[in-house]
């Protein structure tokens, strides 16, 4: 009765034509579910292979769990053992050391490279950009093999061309802790400098030209322009790259693994360059201690979260001070 009365009014007719009224027929109802159907593949696959495994890792960490036999609940034992395991702290130290040696110079170099590439009248622009990006498309395995040869003690080109001619003894990069970290960090740097420089370059090109004109009028030279205009303007981009390389750097695995040659995930005979992910892989997939490996994974997970947050606050504080 009511609806009969209302259909006379133009407004209701129009509302029925548009699909925004609550759906009535089955077909309309299905249609309103379509947007959810279109985004559901992501959620389904991500839940099964991403979110659920991360959470379930914690449950496994509470057990003695191996591929054969029943899992045995052991509570916090794995975590307690981990906290007193020197191998864990060694791997933690190595991971942070390699992260530091590779990230800081890498981002500074990328910033410099981006400044060079940012010249408006630069010739061969695309060519330069492609060449500096090319290491990024190389697989970590290839990078690892190439640099392991370059850093070799007896026949490596770096020793032959850069160490010996200056009167130093040939360095066995694998054996020393610091030298192995430098070798591994070099691989990371080589692979990522170009990529990060393109990110910075993109952000630099979005900075209004007028800012540079003002700085030039104030008598600021190129270097002062970089420090006082470019870097403050790049703040959010820099934070982004620091966080991304932190998350990546904390999980570094392939480079040191390949550098260790046939040594596997132990990272040198004294574990001098074993990273946390290598330790996780060693315990989980070479020794098949799933529970212990899961405890390592969770410890690493917490470290990444804390370290990313810390990075965020520190970088923000630094750039605020600059402003």
């Amino acid at each position: 009765m009511m609806s009969q009365h209302l259909t006379d009014s133009v407004g209701v007719v129009r509302a029925n034509v548009e699909a925004d009224v609550p759906p009535r027929t089955l077909k309309q109802r299905l249609r309103s579910l379509a947007p959810y159907a279109y985004i559901s593949p992501f959620y389904i696959i991500f839940f099964i292979f991403g979110a659920f495994p991360i959470l379930f890792t914690f449950w496994i960490a509470l057990h003695d769990w191996n591929p054969l036999g029943e899992p045995e609940f052991t509570g916090t034992k794995n975590f307690v053992n981990l906290m007193t395991d020197p191998r864990f702290w060694n791997a933690t130290k190595n991971t942070f050391s390699i992260w530091f040696i590779s990230t800081i110079p890498q981002l500074l170099l990328a910033l410099g490279l981006a400044t060079l590439l940012n010249h408006q009248l630069l010739k061969l622009k695309t060519g330069f950009r492609m060449i500096v990006l090319s290491p990024q498309i190389t697989s970590v395995l290839a990078v690892g093999i190439i640099f392991s040869q370059l850093f070799g003690r007896d026949f490596g080109l770096i020793n032959t061309a850069l160490v010996e001619p200056f009167g130093f003894e040939r360095i066995d990069f694998q054996v020393g802790t610091l030298s192995s970290h430098i070798a591994v960090s070099t691989m990371v740097m080589w692979r990522w400098v170009g990529y990060n420089s393109l990110i910075y370059l993109a952000a630099m090109q979005a900075i209004p030209k007028s800012l540079y004109e003002c700085a030039a009028i104030d008598g600021a030279n190129k270097f002062r322009q970089l420090v006082h205009v470019t870097i403050p303007q790049l703040r959010s981009t820099i934070i982004f790259t620091v966080i991304v390389s932190t998350i990546g750097g904390m999980q570094i695995f392939a480079e040191p693994l390949v550098f260790s040659g046939i040594g596997g995930a132990q990272g040198g005979n004294k574990r001098q360059f074993q990273t946390l992910t290598m330790f996780l892989y060693e315990q989980g997939f070479e020794r098949f201690k799933f529970g212990y490996a899961s405890a390592i994974a969770w410890a690493l997970f917490l470290m990444i979260v804390l370290f990313a947050l810390l990075n965020y606050f520190v970088t923000q504080r630094i750039s605020q001070d600059e402003n």
Partner: peptide, 26 residues
């Protein structure tokens, strides 16, 4: 719509490699 999109963006920061043990069991 907005909440569901923000959730997807947030997942980019999750180090999924660390779920490797259950992923392998699965």
């Amino acid at each position: 719509r907005n909440v569901l999109f923000v959730i997807i963006i947030a997942t980019m920061m999750v180090p999924l490699q660390l779920g490797v043990v259950p992923q392998f069991l699965l």
